[in-house]
Design a protein around this nucleic acid. Sequence first.
DNA 1: GAGCGACTATACGATAACGTATAGTCGCTC
DNA 2: GAGCGACTATACGTTATCGTATAGTCGCTC
Lengths: 186, 186
Amino acid sequence: MNIKLLPEDWINEAFAMLAEGGVDSIKIEVLAKRLNVTKGGFYWHFKNRGDLLERMLEHWCQRRIETIRGQVARETDPVATLNYLLGLYTDQTNPRGNAIELAVRSWARQSEAAAATIAVVDRERLAAVAGLFRSLGCADAEAEARAYLFYSYCFGQSLLAVGHQDELDQIRLLCGRLLVTDSAHK
Amino acid sequence: MNIKLLPEDWINEAFAMLAEGGVDSIKIEVLAKRLNVTKGGFYWHFKNRGDLLERMLEHWCQRRIETIRGQVARETDPVATLNYLLGLYTDQTNPRGNAIELAVRSWARQSEAAAATIAVVDRERLAAVAGLFRSLGCADAEAEARAYLFYSYCFGQSLLAVGHQDELDQIRLLCGRLLVTDSAHK
DNA sequence: GAGCGACTATACGATAACGTATAGTCGCTC
DNA sequence: GAGCGACTATACGTTATCGTATAGTCGCTC
């Protein structure tokens, strides 16, 4: 009756659970129930829970790298690209992606494998953004520092729980200026 | 034979577990074992697991507020204070405090109570740091934005997993300049 | 040294999760 | 329409954890 579930489907739903409650909240039977099947199916596709987690990391790593490469490759205006990237983390339009990002990073604090994965992704993203800053005329060291600050801000910001929306919008606008626009005026 | 355990002791050890593995890793029996007693004692001091978690939040909230107030009250040179605060998060000297900070924030994503707690702490800290920036001559809006950027950087930075130590030191030095020193030259 | 308050130790029942085993179903091909 | 590969459903054993109950111990006071 139902269309067959692919490993992708399990992984996707597992990411939803990850976003909602962290790695530890990924329970196989709960996951199966959310997909309206029983856990028997899970063990067809996956060796065990660890296998799922591994494949989630691979999946996430690949997508993140594809995405950042795509975004920078298509770049014409570095400032616009930086502002766009910034928006990915500050906009309320992508709460899920944001939650996943944080959850994976939280996961990395307990798991070597996850830590290794985010290290790969971070290197890629920092290199990409540092490149943008260089094309705005920053020297190598400053470009790297600005990239580092840039991503720290992106992630750290989702950890701060303050302010009302309009107030926040104002603050973030100014932050964007400090992070991006200022670097071009030199 | 053993000196009696106070609720504080339980809470402290629970924070250690929190730092190591997140809220979900706080298991009562494991906690008791780490204190070399059995869980019977736990239920003498605490109504149940939720009670422990609540009291941990209260404890954390109080300490964080005391700390930030103390640090700012004793202030003579705002730049030095800002750099000192920055150091608290970047130095490797306080990995535990850092880990707790992140773990509590991660916890806040699953729990209303934790979210409310960090909101209180964040408000306090942002107000304190914004005050420092104002005393460096920043206008209100800019001071708030800089404070927001400042703390986002602090937390976000512990989420980034890249670079070797010497490289990182260099980057962080520059970030400190972008965040703090620059704001004074206006 | 009896008794009490503040605990700790042990044992228990309940639930939830993991992973396995086994039997069933469904859709496709031949 | 038989058979096969790709799954799903059900049932099971095991372990971890929660919370409770109950009995013990320890140190102090009177």
